[in-house]
Simulated scan of single mutants.
Amino acid sequence: MAADWKCAVNQVTNCVQPETFVVKMDDSETDHREEPGAAQYGNFRNYYTFHPPEARTSLLPPGLLLELLEKHGGEQEALLALDVGCNTGELSIALYNHLLQPEGCSEPLKYVHFMCCDIDPDLITRAQIANPYTDAITFSTLDITDVSSLGTLCNFLERFGRSSFHIGFCMSITMWIHLNHGDNGLTDFLNRLKTLCDYLLIEPQPWKCYRSAARRLRKLGRQDFDHFHTLSIRGDMEKEITEIMTKDGSSELIHRFGTTSWDRSLLLFKIRRPTELSV
């Protein structure tokens, strides 16, 4: 499946027009409107009340991401970012501001554009309403685990004449992909992001969070995650995700940024393209 994405991205000029992709949920899956602990896909309504954006951005050295990305792209090229699982958008906006004008830089960048997506249409609606940068940040409802979502992403890239984003943000999303789609789903997800992004900043959830998420569902009388008891990728999830990312030299871990107050690190990977692998 990852190969299909890579092929499609390489043919970006033939992209279809964008659509909105929504994963339909039955009534039992929307209980998180009243019970936040029952958010099966991590789509908590008040997520940033407990995980403020500045707790992540404060770990990123001023100007480091911008320096890396500017070396990778052209000076006048628009800097493109993909934020997967953006929830209501507060962190997306904080990351946008972090890239737009890092601390110590007197002049802001002129060309920074974000594509931000989430599986929950209600969260995306809230993000769209509160978006202060409508010309630079796009919020879209889509399920990135569904290959058909490539239409929206491909169309966005086509606007700027690119086949990949300069950087992708995957902040506390990997666990929800893993629990709902299994080991293969997690691996496919990360491999797809490699085809779409030149750099990836990933915040993996530790294994204790998996146990807590499953326990919350059981406490609420909900059906357990389909894959929780059959996962073979488990334990040190930071190590496991790093191994998936760096397998066969497809990317390298170039920075590990601190630890948040909720005990998670930010891992920055540089993706290596086939031309680089053959050198």
Rank of each mutant, 00 (worst) to 15 (best):
Y133R: 11
Q205M: 08
L59R: 01
A39F: 02
G89E: 02
N46T: 09
G63Y: 04
P53E: 00
G185W: 04
S251K: 02
D248S: 12
E243Q: 14
L79F: 02
S148F: 01
H72P: 00
G151A: 10
M237R: 05
I202C: 05
D27H: 10
K219H: 14
T88C: 13
K239W: 14
Y199R: 07
L196T: 05
A81C: 10
L193N: 02
R126Y: 09
F21G: 04
L100D: 07
F160L: 05
R211C: 10
Y199N: 03
T30E: 13
L200G: 02
L66T: 03
P52D: 02
Y47E: 00
G168H: 07
H166F: 10
A38K: 12
T260E: 00
D236C: 10
V112L: 05
G85Q: 06
L99V: 07
T230D: 15
M115P: 00
C154E: 02
L277Y: 00
S251L: 06
Y96C: 02
E240N: 14
T145H: 05
L60G: 00
I167V: 14
F189A: 02
D146I: 02
D143F: 08
S250I: 08
M25F: 08
H255E: 12
N46D: 12
D248T: 08
E90M: 15
G182L: 00
D135C: 12
A38W: 06
A136Y: 13
Q76F: 07
Q76T: 09
L69I: 06
N10C: 10
E35L: 13
